[in-house]
Amino acid sequence: MNHGERFINEPTVLNTMQPEAVSLFMSNVETIPGKTITRSLGLVTGSTVRAKHLGKDIFAGLKNIVGGELKAYTELLNESRNEALQRMMLQAHGMGANGIVNVRFATSSVAAGASELFCYGTAVFVE
């Protein structure tokens, strides 16, 4: 799973090269269940544009002979989406937030051979 070793009663830990670990509560509903929102800090966004890796593309091309799941693309998209999430979390952390509510994801093909993965939400301070 893309969350790694994480349990539900802990906030998501941001995995960056930052010395101090950043942890945020996230949900795609209007509140953070079990917490009280004390302040709303505004919109936060994170996005990344990824192109395919040539080696992966060759394997995906071979997989296209039978169809079904294209694991190379699934992994690529998962990595990218996590990166977009981390950028959003970093932005929220910079604003002094400790949670993001109403998280939404969007995917679009911006150019031939590249896709943009975008996520956005509302940064909040919860207690």
Binding site: N2, H3, R6, I8, T12, F25, M26, S27, N28, V29, I32, P33, G34, E69, L70, K71, Y73, T74, L77, N78, R81, V103, F105
Partner: peptide, 9 residues
């Protein structure tokens, strides 16, 4: 709570 997200191609 936790935010869950999964994708498949």
């Amino acid at each position: 709570s936790a935010l869950l997200h999964v994708s498949i191609c």
